[in-house]
């Protein structure tokens, strides 16, 4: 019996590839933009790309935000991907400052513009977005990232895997009880990504 997952459609980017990857690892996927439907889910995946802004404010303040909080508080497995993970935290400095769902402690910050590839200040300036394949620690696996903002949390016990870009070490994945998040795109991370999604689907863990 495949695990039923509600894939939240909140107008924060293309869902097809996430749906395709979830099906590949054995989930039965229901795509929904209906907060009432999401509120009844036994397992939720909440993807997002793009930025904090008016769309995320409408979501956080609206019925969908309430539904997502309800699922999380009830203890059902929840996975936020990329912007979907960032939205679990308190605030973002993006677009002049927007609130998140405030489920977890932390802020969303932009990578500093002047990071260098090495210790030498003359070494190449790092590009933003952080785009491409980076390894995470402690597993050493590679995942695909595409983001200019990252989570900074005062609670390191939330962080399962770390990733480093320039001088910034940021959470690649977070976990607290039933709540999981990944900054990378598992649906674009080939076998590493599929394994990550499968762990979530099978165990409600990541």
């Amino acid at each position: 019996m495949p695990r039923e997952v509600i894939l939240v459609d909140s107008q924060l980017g293309n869902l097809d590839s996430v749906e395709h990857a979830l099906i590949q690892v054995g989930a039965s996927v229901i795509v929904s933009s209906d907060p009432d439907r999401v509120a009844t889910a036994r397992m939720v995946v909440f993807p997002g790309q793009g930025s904090f802004g008016p769309t995320t404010r409408a979501l956080v303040d609206g019925a969908m935000g309430a539904a997502l909080r309800m699922v999380i508080e009830r203890g059902d497995p929840f996975l936020g991907i990329c912007l979907g993970m960032q939205l679990l935290f308190e605030q973002s400095e993006e677009s002049g400052g927007f609130d998140g769902l405030k489920v977890l402690p932390g802020q969303v910050r932009r990578f500093p513009a002047d990071m260098r590839a090495g210790e030498d200040p003359e070494s190449a300036r790092l590009k933003i977005p952080h785009m491409g394949w980076s390894d995470v620690q402690p597993t050493g696996e590679h995942f695909y990232f595409a983001h200019s903002y990252y989570v900074e949390t005062p609670d390191p016990s939330l962080v399962m895997w770390w990733c480093r870009y320039g001088s910034v070490e940021f959470p690649a994945t977070i976990a607290r009880g039933n709540v999981f998040g990944c900054q990378f795109h598992p649906e674009k991370s080939q076998w590493s990504g599929l394994r990550f999604l499968r762990s979530f689907i099978l165990g409600g863990r990541a």
Binding site: I23, Q24, W133, H142, Q190, L194
Partner: peptide
């Protein structure tokens, strides 16, 4: 570069 990784340990349904 990202090392080449052979597929392993993933449930393939399709």
């Amino acid at each position: 570069v990202r090392p080449h990784e052979a597929p392993r340990g993933v449930l393939i349904t399709g």
